[in-house]
Design a protein around this nucleic acid. Structure first.
Length: 143
RNA sequence: GCAGGCGGUCGGAUGGUCGCCGCCCGGUGGGCGCAAGCUACACCGGGGGGAGGAAAGUCCGAACUCCGCAGGGCAGUGUGCCGGAUAACGUCCGGGACGCGAGCGUCAAGGCUCGUGGACGGCCAGUGCAACAGAAAACAGACCGCCAGGUGGCCGCAAGGACACAAGGUAAGGGUGAAACGGUGGGGUAAGAGCCCACCGCGUUGGCAGUAAUGACAACGGCACGGUAAACCCCACACGGAGCAAGACCAAAUAGGCAGGGAGACAAUCGCUCCUCUUCAGGCGAUGUCACGUAGCGGCCCGUUACGGCAAGACGAAGGGAUGUGCGCGAGCACAAGUCGGAACCUGCGGGUAGGUUGCUGGAGCGCAUCAGUAAUGCUGCGCCUAGAGGAAUGACCGUCUAAAACAGAAUUCGGCUUACGGGCCGCCUGCACAA
RNA sequence: GCUGAUGUAGCUCAGUGGUAGAGCACUCCCUUGGUAAGGGAGAGGUCGAGAGUUCAAGCCUCUCCAUCAGCU
């Protein structure tokens, strides 16, 4: 299963339904993917997208940022277990910092994302057993 | 040897561990097929390939694709010494003239040699522009000046001297400017002046050399023809427009377009028929029966249940009445209410979106050699295949050379230009130092 | 990727090749008991950068830089 997030529509969904959170050198968005709609195939497993706008530098610098981050994501992907979409917004300092520090940061982000997913899933299960789910994320999951 | 300038060339190498994107081969599974086999899907194994000299800026030129197009002209845009190269070019090569720098030479200039630079046709077709300064800025003119002679008075014994005035002569000197109808030297003169002479510049003519640009030479002229065309313009030549997000093919859902079906029959009763009422003609509806369509259920042509076939869909004739508007003193007359649409559903067709496939890399290609050419380049032969993605592939870490490499990332493809760039190598020129 | 447009004072914009301007904003003065308005004076510009043409460039030509917009 592809762990990349590609479609423009997917990006829009993540941006709409989540709030920006900040790490030291990377800002990130994350959202749980909804229940599969009948007749529509939905990808399983975590997906990660990168956004590197033109303001971060010229083509060489942007490519380098993406490559370093992809390498970090490859190492830390096993930390994400649920069906979650994550978007990373790196800063310019990603170009120059030590690679080991970058790896630590990505791992930390993924751990916190996974923890947040577990929390919301448990809350949804408890609430969904009796009444209408009042939580924000499950409400959005309805098609 | 060092420093500087110009041109060319290379654009980190190598080893290890993980990882990314195409391609090829083999295997397994899936799918299709009676089979042989095929396969665009998934996985595994192996092999091989994977950014640039500028990939950049998008400044030119092409290929390719679509649109337009009888033919010709105007307008517009671009190019602009000559010859050659090329698919083409604003590019490249060679040559010429000109500018700049250095050296040699000269009293000085002209000149010679080397290097180097550039959008280098035409102001003897026409029109325009030139602030300020200056007397004067364009078929020239005279401010301060200079000048023999004339007139006037003054000084002086005289020779003559200085002054003023009018009419002239002159352009050497002063001064302004970016630019003032040739420059230097000599003669000449009242003062001057190509007025005359020598050299230079310029122009005209002539033949000579050269494919040509042009060059050198001779004779003559006697200075006229100032600058600006990256001012309008003239001359010569070239040019249709858009661009791979061009274009082609396949094509879901939803909405919408077009065509057809839906839009049948029978009997009686009760109704409707356009502001309203009455009558007539025609038409229509509801209820009923049968047939039909759609959906569900039952295994089925069949049965059964539900729904559907629409504003009671026509618009004609005669007469009476009400309302509104206009006209009319009024009686009254005229006009108006309101328009033409077809439903659910089914079938077919065409356009077309998401999405997919293609265009997509073998080409005006690269390397080597021979030959032609001063060269750019071309012919021939041999060898090579060298990214092709689609949110977009080359990375991370550790070694060694060696220290951390500079500018920087393909997106339809080529030929150029321009701009950015650490360092290495090669060639040419200049200067300095040392040695012979 | 392709195609266009624009850069002038702190801001918004003018500017036929001949000394760079307007409005708002800023500083000082007058006016007022004080403020605003009004009047007067003043400061503020590498005309995005660099070359070229020209006697002379904000303007003409070329090359760079930055910003904005359109095509999907």
């Amino acid at each position: 299963m592809d762990h990349r997030l590609c479609q423009h529509a997917d990006y829009q969904r993540v941006y709409k339904t989540s709030r920006k959170q900040f790490g030291k050198q990377i800002a990130y968005f994350h959202v749980l993917r909804g229940v599969p709609v009948a007749g529509r195939e939905v990808a399983r497993g975590p997906r990660v997208g990168l956004t590197v706008p033109k303001a971060l530098g010229k083509a060489v610098d942007r490519n380098r940022i993406k490559r370093r981050l992809r390498e970090c994501v490859r190492g830390a992907l096993s930390l994400l277990t649920s069906d979650v979409d994550v978007i990373l917004h790196p800063r310019r300092s990603v170009l120059t910092t030590e690679f080991a520090g970058l790896e630590r940061e990505v791992a930390m982000i993924f751990r916190s994302v996974q923890a947040a997913c577990d929390r919301t899933k448990n809350a949804a299960n408890r609430a969904g057993s009796e009444v209408e789910p009042a939580q924000r994320v499950p409400a959005v999951q309805q098609p």
